[in-house]
Write a protein that binds this DNA or RNA. Structure first.
Length: 603
DNA sequence: CCACCAGAGCTC
DNA sequence: AGCTCTGGTGGC
């Protein structure tokens, strides 16, 4: 067997062929020469002859690191599949899926042989959606107790830790809380899992790569959460990977949460009759807002009578009121007169601020600059420049509600300070108070008794790419209704230009109503979940035009908004079609040109 | 005289 | 994207 294909992690998709004298186990790491230096790679397959792709001299493997493959075959298949489905390449997926020492240090790790695959029962899917987190956890615990080996995923580490706390003592001993960050802790947990010591793993999205074997049950909580998507390269969705992993392991897959994702709603037809009680939701018209002037701004804040009376009522009962607004700073923004959508940064989705001096827009998050669009990108309506003040301007108003024992707090002040600061925040709010913050302030629901949550300008909460903006807002408002303790006695207020219309119907009637309306629209537009939507960033303008023309040749209709210049979008029925078209751009031979970056939206 | 660096060049 | 090689700079 003189040849073998080696996967060397990098932005390219193809494996590299090397000569070898010794018999190399598939999945083992090897050191290979590459370019001027050497790299660590994984043996993909062995070949008795050179398959003659030709054109270059084939070099030899320098040495074999592992005698036994680093991880079980099912996990190898998961990386392979993920690399294709997310169009990021298996190498990039490996980079985030295994402890980084395995790619940097060529020390061998002594591991036992992979166990044979268990094929006792067929993989099945179970859906259940419950708004209350603790109710869901109770069901998870029951499922986990019946299972020999399990994996439980949460969108955030905090929720995983919360679930872990609820586990009975006897279970905790046999379970590993998966570390959210790399380093020594992760390596230790990884090796324990690889040795199949724990019965179960509980963790955030990253735990989907835990090398546990013979898993029987995989639970994904809050499966529609955007937190399962990675926000940097490689762009993956851990929920989708968890689904594939369940199929590979013949494990039963449990999808759960407060709301289903669009794809699961469409495919699994999950049922729920949960909706908030009539008294829990208030919808008010922003156009009836008071013009409350704020020092140093000379501007108006949209504060309705209902907001102020509900806040007072909440404080009088000794609970905490939350004012939510996703705009930071005093700067003005530009919004659509018709639908209320704010102009968003094309790179990161943050609401852009208007710079009066230069008559242009600037992203407060990533500092990118763009010109002011002529019409609203969402509804083609008229845009107008508003000078609607943000969070900092709102705070002085909240301050006027402050009293002894009931402080007014600005959430931004506590965000960077870590866990201790958040706990001290809970202490200060023990007999109520008022907090001003962005959506991130919703975590307070877990540690503070929130009696009132007011969305100051719910139309402006729309962010990220337009087609799923409505779901993002819906699920956020939905979250504010159900997260944390005493949610049944919480009042949630939506200040809007179109109170109760559109997606807001779902807030009153439940997610079934929301998705039924939303999917009708998406079907017409051919957007996910009816297709896959890909965002591609080319490495150069020349590469972009080559990609565009190849796609058109093959019957796809790429969309090129021209801004930012290297980006374009395309929808496709299956990812594999696009994969075939763009694979040539991801060959290692193209390194000089640079590689494109692809992000796939599946729902 | 060599340690340290930024930048270039290369990749089965 | 790494990796190494290169050539310039600067510290002693």
């Amino acid at each position: 067997m003189p040849y073998c294909d080696v996967l060397v992690p990098g932005p390219w998709w193809n494996g590299l062929t090397y000569k070898t004298e010794m018999n190399v186990p598939i999945g083992a790491r090897v050191v290979v020469p590459l370019g001027r230096g050497e790299r660590i790679g994984f043996v993909q397959r062995l070949d008795s002859e050179d398959r003659g792709r030709g054109g270059f001299a084939i070099r030899s493997i320098r040495r074999i690191i592992d005698e036994i493959p680093l991880f079980p075959p099912s996990l190898w298949e998961l990386f392979d599949w993920g690399g294709r489905v997310f169009l990021c390449g298996t190498g990039e997926l490996l980079r985030i899926g295994i402890p980084s020492v395995f790619l940097s240090s060529s020390d061998a790790t002594l591991l036992p042989l992979p166990l044979p695959r268990m094929e006792t029962k067929a993989s099945e899917e179970v859906f259940f959606y419950l708004c209350d987190f603790h109710e869901r956890c109770k069901k998870f615990i029951a499922l986990v107790e019946r299972s020999e080996r399990f994996l439980v995923l949460f969108p955030e580490q905090g929720l995983a830790a919360e679930f872990w706390k609820l586990l009975p003592e006897s279970q905790k001993k046999e379970t590993v809380l998966w570390p959210s960050q790399g380093g020594k802790k992760l390596l230790a947990a990884w090796i324990r899992a690889r040795n199949n010591v724990p019965r179960g793993i509980i963790g955030g999205p990253g735990a989907v790569f835990a090398p546990l074997q013979q898993i029987e049950t995989i639970i994904v909580d809050e499966e529609s959460s955007g937190a399962y998507r990675s926000y940097k390269k490689p762009f993956i969705n851990a929920r989708t990977l968890a689904g594939k992993r369940a199929r590979l392991e013949s494990a039963s897959l449990v999808l759960s949460g407060r709301t289903p994702s669009s794809r699961i709603f469409l495919r699994g037809k999950p049922r729920s009759t949960e909706r908030p009680a009539r008294d829990n939701v208030r919808l008010v018209d922003l156009r009836e807002a008071f013009a409350s002037s704020v020092q140093g701004v000379g501007d108006s804040l949209p504060l309705t009578h209902t907001l102020l009376t509900e806040t007072k009522r909440c404080l009088a009962s000794g609970r905490t009121a939350l004012w939510l607004l996703d705009r930071k700073g005093y700067a003005g923004e530009i919004a659509c007169e018709d639908c209320g959508n704010a102009a968003r940064c094309p790179k990161c989705g943050t609401a852009m601020v208007w710079e009066e001096k230069h008559d242009r827009l600037r992203c407060p998050a990533c500092a990118s600059i763009r010109s002011i669009p002529q019409v609203c990108p969402v509804c083609r309506g008229h845009l107008l420049i508003g000078k609607r003040p943000g969070l900092e301007a709102l705070f002085p108003v909240a301050k006027s509600f402050e009293s002894d024992g009931q402080p007014a707090l600005f959430m931004e002040d506590f965000k960077t300070a870590g866990k201790g600061a958040v706990r001290s925040l809970a202490d200060r709010l023990s007999s109520g108070g008022i907090v001003v913050g962005t959506r991130a302030a919703l975590v307070l629901c877990d540690i503070v008794d929130i009696g009132f949550a007011g969305w100051i300008d719910v139309d402006a909460e729309v962010r990220s790419i337009a087609y799923q903006a409505k779901f993002t807002v819906f699920s956020m408002v939905w979250e504010s209704l159900w997260r944390g303790k005493n949610h049944s006695e919480r009042v949630v207020l939506l200040q809007s230009r179109r109170p109760g219309a559109g997606w807001q119907k779902g807030v009153v009637q439940g997610w079934k109503t929301f998705w039924t309306h939303e999917l009708k629209e998406r079907k017409e537009l051919g957007l996910p979940p009816y297709s896959y939507l890909l965002e591609i960033q080319a490495a150069s303008l020349q590469q972009k035009s080559e990609m565009l023309s190849r796609m058109e040749e093959r019957g796809l209709f790429p969309m090129d908004p021209g801004d930012p210049p290297l980006h374009f979008w395309v929808t496709a029925r299956s990812v594999s079609v696009v994969q075939d078209i763009i694979a040539p751009f991801f060959s290692i031979g193209c390194s000089k040109n640079g590689f494109p970056e692809v992000s796939v939206w599946i729902d």
